[in-house]
Nucleic acid binder design. Structure first.
Lengths: 83, 83
DNA sequence: CAGCTTTATGATTTAAACGTCATAAAGCGT
DNA sequence: ACGCTTTATGACGTTTAAATCATAAAGCTG
């Protein structure tokens, strides 16, 4: 239920997953975030890159935030149950 | 040594901190990441927002990645020693 | 299948970031 | 204070994303 991201595509997938987890449509999220449904579609599918402003607008609307972490660390599985 | 980010400015601070932690100048990071020194300066100080592509180029050059996390969770202090 | 909802795609306009160059300002060691 | 390094700022042109509108495609559900 936590996502690691090393590319815009990863972020898109994380957003989609979080959105669906909250049972929101792209339109719902568009209303909450002020970002267009069309833009959300493009971000989630990774067809277009985004600006970080847009990214944070979506994350905020989904009650998410980012953590900046070193790439080299224990296996992800170890952390699964912490969050 | 891990940073949480809810805004472009937070990301900039995290990048600066990570860069300094590795004793790299903006110019060094520019060479490694392919992003201009001037751009890095603007990102770190938060004067301009960025594209996620640029963000990930910098994170990759610093051996960092992102984690997408829910905002509501245990105090950050609890996690400090995990990463 | 038909109809409705949801998501994807495509074009156009507008706005903003990036590369680029130049240069100023700030830091730092001697 | 004087250089040298590092970082910041400003301007300009090019590239790219977001808004916007239209519409197509995909997913459901009866």
């Amino acid at each position: 239920m936590k996502q690691f991201a090393r590319s815009p595509k990863d972020i898109g997938q994380a957003i989609r997953q979080a959105r669906k987890g909250k049972n929101l449509t792209q339109k719902d999220l568009a209303v909450k975030s002020g970002v267009w449904q069309e833009t959300i579609s493009k971000v989630e599918t990774g067809v277009a890159s985004t600006r970080v402003e847009t990214l944070f607008a979506l994350l905020a609307a989904l009650d998410l935030e980012l953590a900046v972490l070193p790439r080299s660390r224990g296996s992800q599985a170890d952390l699964e149950d912490i969050f």
